[in-house]
Nucleic acid binder design. Structure first.
Lengths: 224, 224
DNA sequence: CAAGGGTGTGACGCGTTTGTGACTGGTTTT
DNA sequence: AAAACCAGTCACAAACGCGTCACACCCTTG
């Protein structure tokens, strides 16, 4: 079994060393402006805090990608607040996925172990986590508390777009455009059917209803 | 290409003018207690320091939002320390995002350029705060001290319009027009019912009564 | 080519929203 | 003091918006 090397920009490392029983499978290293302090082999996972002096989170992201030692690392951006623009910026800066913080010990290990057990390769995995909902862009799969949600392609795209803009009312037009539908012009009422199907799928996976209807306007993905 | 107008509360402006090569694309202005010194057109970006000599950053934030000249500006709050509570306060006061300071030239340009590349998505004020009342234009939700106010579409539009013109008597005609009702002509007495319903909704959320009746004239949103 | 699942659409029914007239209680004017 | 005026509230009917269903048309797969 490979050793997984975990880099963190916060103090969580020490706390994790106490927490994890089988330390041989992990190494922890504090991530500073100069990059990792140790040179390591094997899979690497970096958790980068968004909130650092001078927006260093994004900069750190770019450096990790540029640094040959860490170019292959799986980079998770830790956002403290949920801002769609920040999320986009994080991904553009080279992050593979992100979590809406605060980062907890279990959150870290959950993700690392989940990825490990699935035997995922190095390919960049885009993953969002919003409350109980997880969206895995690589596997094209969504989960509610680890419970898979069976979605048809269009429903997945819809969920993804909604989740990318949480707490924001999206009109039916927004959604049609957001899914890249243009020809032929889609009837706005069709969106209602999409939403209905998506809701049913989420409920079938034991999930709640994060999709709130805003009468006469559109729909919101409700975070929290 | 649009010109981006950048307001700063610190001395960074002069330093930036040296730094930026293509100055035609930017204007810089020092932001004082009285607001911007120049009246400008086009996208505006304000960087507000948390700690200011004359008045608190939060207050400045609110003034920018209340001032018609700068209501649409994208406001970035510059925090000296990373305090979650401060961050929340900044957003509540109308800031669109924040940076953990000290503010550097690259930080400023990073963000502004990111905004530009974002394209047309720029939307007017996302959120504003008046006393205990918060109106989130993105989520289309109103709160009284964090307590959500459940509003019907028309009530939300009404509250929004009233809150956009605080301390100003609005006639029933103003309100009808302000909500974009035209066909069929609305009976002015109907406004009374709207107000009544809105008041009840606010009260149901534990709120006070910011809507004052001005006999024989109309209604005012009382900012206190 | 047949079978099967995914997707858009029109139609139906239900619950919610909303404008209005009427009534009431209070205030100003005559 | 009476009359006129004005705003708050209620009940109700009509309009509206949404959820849902069945069906037809894909487009893929065997």
């Amino acid at each position: 079994m490979d050793v997984v090397n975990i880099f963190l920009t916060s103090e969580l490392g020490e706390s994790l060393e106490d927490f994890v029983h089988d330390q041989r499978r992990f190494t922890f290293d504090r991530l500073g402006a100069e990059g990792p302090r140790r040179l390591v082999e094997g899979p690497m996972w970096a958790f980068v805090d968004w909130v650092m002096p001078e927006l260093a989170g994004l900069e750190m992201c770019r450096r990790l990608r540029a640094d040959a030692r860490t170019a292959d690392a799986h980079v998770t951006m830790v956002l403290e607040e949920d801002d769609p623009e920040d999320r986009r910026r994080a991904l553009r800066a080279g992050a593979d996925d992100y979590v809406i913080g605060p980062l907890t010990r279990t959150a870290v290990l959950d993700r690392v172990l989940a990825l490990q057990s699935r035997g995922v390769e190095r390919q960049p995995t885009r993953r969002f986590e919003l409350g109980a909902l997880t969206i895995d862009m690589a596997a094209l799969q969504a989960r509610w508390n680890e419970q898979p949600i069976v979605l048809r392609p269009n429903e997945f795209r819809l969920l993804r777009f909604l989740a990318e803009n949480p707490n924001r009312v999206l009109t039916r037009e927004d959604l049609i455009n957001g899914l890249g539908k243009r020809e032929p012009p889609i009837d706005e009422r069709t969106v209602d059917v999409w939403i209905g199907r998506l809701r049913r799928a989420i409920k079938a996976a034991g999930g709640g209803n994060p999709l709130r209807t805003v009468r006469s306007l559109g729909y919101v993905f409700d975070l929290s």
